[in-house]
Design a protein around this nucleic acid. Structure first.
Length: 636
DNA sequence: GGGCGCTGTCATCTG
DNA sequence: CTCAGATGACAGCGC
């Protein structure tokens, strides 16, 4: 019945696709809701694909396990789904290039050779999940096997032209894989999982082994033992295992010495979140991912409607339309996003969403907001073309700085005037990112010619004059008193060549030149001082975190030492009790019971247990101590 | 009024 | 040498 429904559904989809190609829209969601994920028709015309928008549903049916893989009419469906998979794979930059290059090349007509037997991959849903999950996880490591398998599942759609020979062989082989082999694969994967689990448990086992090896020696050997000895030795074994168990308990009782490991960035993020009330939508992990992608992607590509830009559209809609979290989770793969967010790129969420949408920022954003001198903190690292801005800086710098780098890069790549780039700097972003920014580059207009720069700045000043004047600093007033069409902020942040050109072109006197130089120097130094202080605070916080972590670790070690000492004391006490019990049951050559005060049990290194007079051990200990003392005396 | 934190500024060093 | 950045020290200001 299940297969009949599947085939009927496939026929329905085929018919629907044909109708859609003719321009007739058919809603099959009502039927497919219980079988496929809802199909949403895109507006891209006949070439558009049916997209299973909820990625989680899509993931559950990934690789066509529940869809008949041999329906050529489903090419678009599979292609779109594969592309969506690639979009989702954007979370892992290492995966994306390989698989996209394999899928976007050309379409090979189906020769029917592999259309005979569909893979019976839809039989066991558990296997599907395992295959799907493992496939995604193993892509990073087992590119050959994982890729081959993925190709085999979608072999009716298209074939990768790169490494075609190899893949086609694998494909042919894999098409002949029967159900048993699939089960074996699943078993192997489960075995790998088990091995992984074993690996994760290995450390624990090693610890237990170490603890076990540290216990008392094995039972008596080489002695003729009476029945009482056998009982004693069995009890001794129990004691041995008890000590081991106790040590294991101690290990389990001990908490993780480092109960938390909060990075400075996390601390800064949490601090920022509490200190600034930003819209929640702009701080969601969803938005982080897209910011990350935007940083990775070439602006030209993103503007050309590449995959990242489509993500931006998702972002914009979701953030603007008040999408519920569940809906967000339905549209995007949190697993991928979490993976991305773990890449120390979380602070990219502070990029203005309007920037990501390619829209112009707030044109009336005042630069001089919170500084009485007019040289706002936000000016730091807000250059549209700072010398440090490069695509490589994304990987080298810390997140906040990188976010600005990408932002500035996108701005400069738009080819707009530098003034427009200045206007697009939202001061709010820097206020939040200053905790992450350790480059603290100053804004500069590197890519602008001098004339265009002056023009842009003058236009900006004109627009700025229309805005309400903030409380001006001394330097700001001094600059304005000179009648220059520049603010102190601009004088501070303009490139040095532009500044020199300004000094030459304005026919300034010596004192005026000195004043402008001082204004520029003070402004830069002010920013430097702010950055320096923040850096110092970061260092203090980092060190404080390290101190806290080390303190926790020290406490755990002290507790562990206490527990170990107690266990050792208990073991010694137990050993003494057992020794007395054994000695009381032993007889000397005259049949007299051994006095426990005069004899003791000695456990040798080879596992033998011998009865020795206490005087011998005492004398041995004495001689040993004397030898040690002699050696110590000889050393100096 | 003194303490404290923040901020701007200066001097100096470094790259 | 110039410039930019970093940093210690100091002063002013507000709480």
């Amino acid at each position: 019945m299940h297969h009949m429904k599947k085939y009927f559904t496939e026929g329905l989809i085929q018919f629907t696709i044909l109708l859609s190609l003719l321009g007739v829209r058919v809603d099959v969601d009502t039927y497919l809701s219980g079988y496929f994920s809802p199909l949403i028709e895109t507006d891209g015309g006949p070439s558009s694909a049916f997209i299973q928008t909820p990625f989680h549903h899509y993931r559950d049916t990934a690789a066509g396990y529940q869809v008949h893989p041999k329906c050529p009419e489903l090419d678009y469906f599979f292609t779109s789904r594969r592309l969506l998979n690639e979009v989702r794979a954007l979370g892992s930059p290492a995966r994306f290039p390989t698989r996209v290059s394999a899928w976007l090349v050309h379409l090979v007509p189906d020769d029917g050779s592999d259309a005979g037997e569909p893979h019976d991959l839809s039989g066991d849903p558990d296997d599907e999940e395992i295959n799907d999950d493992d496939h995604r996880e193993e892509d990073d490591h087992r590119t050959g096997e994982g890729f081959g398998r993925s190709v085999s599942h979608d072999s009716t759609v298209s074939r990768p032209c790169c490494a075609a020979g190899e893949l086609s062989k694998e494909e042919t082989l894999l098409n002949q894989v029967n159900e048993e082999e699939e089960e074996e694969v699943v078993k192997d994967e489960r075995g790998q999982e088990d091995s992984l689990n074993q690996l994760t448990q290995s450390s624990t086992l090693e610890q237990e082994d170490l603890l076990g090896s540290s216990t008392l020696p094995p039972p008596l050997s080489g002695l003729e033992l009476p029945p009482q000895w056998q009982d004693f030795l069995s009890e001794f074994d129990d004691f041995d295992s008890m000590v081991t168990q106790r040590m294991s308990d101690l290990e389990s009782e001990l908490p993780n010495p480092i109960s938390y490991d909060v990075s400075l960035q996390d601390a800064m993020v949490s601090r920022r979140d509490t200190a600034h009330s930003r819209p929640a939508s702009s701080r969601t992990p969803l938005f982080r991912l897209e910011s990350t992608n935007s940083s990775h992607s070439d602006p030209s590509q993103s503007s050309a409607g590449a995959l990242p830009s489509s993500l931006f559209c998702l972002s914009g809609n979701s953030s603007r339309n008040d999408t519920s979290p569940s809906q967000m989770g339905g549209y995007l793969d949190e697993a991928v996003f979490d993976h991305i967010n773990m890449l120390d790129l979380g602070n990219l969420d502070t990029i203005d969403p309007q920037m990501l949408d390619g829209r112009e920022g707030d044109m009336d954003t005042p630069w001089l907001e919170d500084s009485d001198s007019g040289l706002s903190l936000e000016s730091s690292s807000r250059s549209p073309a700072s010398p440090s801005v490069s695509s490589d800086s994304f990987y080298e710098d810390e997140g906040g700085a990188t976010g600005y780098s990408s932002e500035a890069e996108s701005l400069s790549s738009k080819g707009g005037a530098c003034a427009a780039a200045y206007r697009d700097w939202s001061p709010v972003n820097l206020v939040e990112n200053v905790w992450h920014d350790h480059t603290y580059s100053t804004p500069q207009a590197q890519n602008c010619t001098s004339s265009s720069w002056f023009t842009a700045i003058k236009q900006e000043v004109m627009s700025e004059d229309e805005a309400e004047p903030e409380e001006m600093s001394r330097d700001e007033r001094r600059v304005q008193s000179l009648g220059l069409p520049f603010s102190a902020f601009q004088i501070v942040n303009m490139p040095v060549e532009n500044f020199l050109e300004l000094l030459d072109s304005q026919n300034l006197s010596g004192s005026e030149v000195t004043l402008l130089r001082d204004v520029r120097r003070r402004g830069k130094n002010k920013l430097a001082a702010q950055n320096c202080r923040k850096r110092k605070l970061d260092t203090i916080l980092t060190l404080q975190g390290e101190v806290d972590g080390l303190s926790v670790k020290r406490d755990a070690l002290l507790r562990q030492r206490s527990h170990t000492a107690k266990a050792l004391s208990a073991a010694a006490e137990r050993f003494e009790t057992l020794s007395q019990t054994v000695l009381s049951q032993l007889r000397d050559e005259y049949g007299h019971p051994l006095n426990p005060e005069h004899y003791t049990l000695h456990c040798s290194a080879n596992g033998r247990v011998m009865v020795q007079p206490r005087s011998i051990t005492t004398s041995r200990t004495m001689t040993g101590s004397k030898t040690m003392k002699r050696k110590k005396n000889k050393k100096p």
